[in-house]
Computed example of a mutant assay.
Amino acid sequence: MDFSLTEDQRALRAGMRELMERRFPRARLRAVVDAEGVGGAAAGDGAGAGAGGVDRGLWRELGAAGFFALRLPEAAGGVGLGLPEAVLAFEEAGRSLLPGPLAATHLAAGLAATGAPVGGAAEGEAVVTAFDAAGAGRGGAVLVEHLASADAVLVLGDGDAGIRTAKEIGSSAEAIRSLDPATPLHRVCGGVAPAAAWERSSGEQGVGAGRGTAARLRREAALLTAAQQLGSALRTVETAVAHARERIQFGRAIGAFQAVQHLCASMLVRAETARSVVYAAAVTEDPGDIAAAVLLADEAAVRNARDCLQVHGGMGFTWEADVHLHLKRAWVRAEQWQTAAAAEEELAAGLMSTGARCL
């Protein structure tokens, strides 16, 4: 069986990379991180965004490129592709450390086929973040990213999913300091009913997308987040190798030293291992495969960023270097959608189920 990318898939990945390099280069990333914005533009004005805000111009360009509507049927105005293609696109977004609730907006755009109101999510006209109501059982609070920039919130309950307004969620939210300077977070303590309680409601209380939807959306969001982690892991490999070739120490490029070579080789092995599992999970969509992809992609993103920092030496610890941005974003993503503990439980449950069937 041939698992190589098709010509169309390679073109999609190349197009996404070109878009990211043109519209979100390193200078733009540093502007967001350093709280300088773009020309003082405020989030939502159509030109750019200040620190922590979503660049609405770039968001609409992503929509025009079909990023959010990749898996929407052509009859509904989408591109009509599948989860593997979405994974390739999200990998490139992760490679560039593109901020914003990408997975939530992508999933909300897909709900258009169910009749749920998404208010322009597919076109990039709306920013949609996510609130996982099931997470309220863990300490009574849920962290929501980019809430201040969002137009709507995708709420996931125990079995149902639906769309609510950001204003409703924001009324019970408290801004907290985020480890990642490009991912603003709000802590929401109660005040949001599980989706099952308002699934059949209408008007200001939102409209649901049907029972059983939440579990599927969680799995897809976990895989798309793993794809972003994969992109970050691959980017840190490139960054470490490039620095090892350029940095001269004791009269030689540090890449000539065996210790540095071993670090870079280990980074590549982690990234390529994660890539194979993430791609396989996109094809099978199996919960166990997705859990494995989450575990390996999280490990690759975090450990590769740490090793990249070591390759850079003292300068890797400075604010001016980009290495810390990959590490901080990897830490934040690792706590979103499916944590390592939840992924391990998913894998354990699958192994127990397989063992029981074999007895």
Rank of each mutant, 00 (worst) to 15 (best):
residue 78 G to N: 14
residue 217 L to E: 08
residue 135 G to C: 05
residue 108 A to I: 10
residue 154 L to G: 01
residue 347 L to G: 07
residue 351 L to D: 13
residue 96 S to A: 15
residue 181 P to R: 00
residue 200 R to W: 09
residue 85 E to K: 12
residue 197 A to Y: 07
residue 214 A to Q: 08
residue 55 D to T: 06
residue 324 H to N: 15
residue 129 T to G: 04
residue 191 G to N: 00
residue 312 H to Y: 10
residue 352 M to A: 12
residue 301 A to V: 01
residue 211 R to D: 09
residue 347 L to N: 02
residue 54 V to R: 04
residue 38 V to K: 08
residue 338 Q to Y: 11
residue 96 S to W: 00
residue 303 R to P: 03
residue 1 M to H: 11
residue 45 D to Y: 03
residue 191 G to Q: 02
residue 345 E to Q: 15
residue 7 E to Q: 07
residue 335 E to I: 04
residue 205 Q to I: 07
residue 221 A to C: 00
residue 141 A to G: 14
residue 129 T to H: 04
residue 265 A to M: 08
residue 81 L to G: 07
residue 315 M to L: 14
residue 124 G to Y: 00
residue 85 E to V: 13
residue 10 R to W: 13
residue 214 A to K: 02
residue 196 A to Y: 09
residue 230 L to E: 02
residue 302 V to W: 00
residue 240 A to P: 06
residue 227 A to Q: 00
residue 194 P to A: 04
residue 103 A to T: 04
residue 359 L to Q: 09
residue 114 T to A: 02
residue 215 A to N: 09
residue 183 T to E: 14
residue 177 R to L: 10
residue 195 A to N: 03
residue 61 E to N: 10
residue 179 L to K: 07
residue 38 V to H: 13
residue 288 G to Y: 05
residue 279 Y to C: 11
residue 347 L to A: 10
residue 136 A to C: 06
residue 106 H to C: 11
residue 169 I to S: 08
residue 96 S to E: 05
residue 88 L to T: 08
residue 217 L to Q: 05
residue 183 T to N: 11
residue 215 A to V: 12
residue 276 S to M: 07
residue 191 G to K: 06
residue 166 A to L: 13
residue 31 A to I: 07
residue 337 W to R: 14
residue 300 A to K: 01
residue 335 E to Q: 12
residue 284 T to K: 05
residue 224 L to Q: 01
residue 185 L to K: 03
residue 270 R to H: 03
residue 130 A to Q: 02
residue 263 L to M: 11
residue 172 S to Q: 14
residue 307 D to I: 12
residue 242 A to R: 08
residue 354 T to C: 14
residue 193 A to I: 02
residue 192 V to N: 09
residue 324 H to L: 14
residue 131 F to Q: 09
residue 233 A to Q: 02
residue 282 A to G: 15
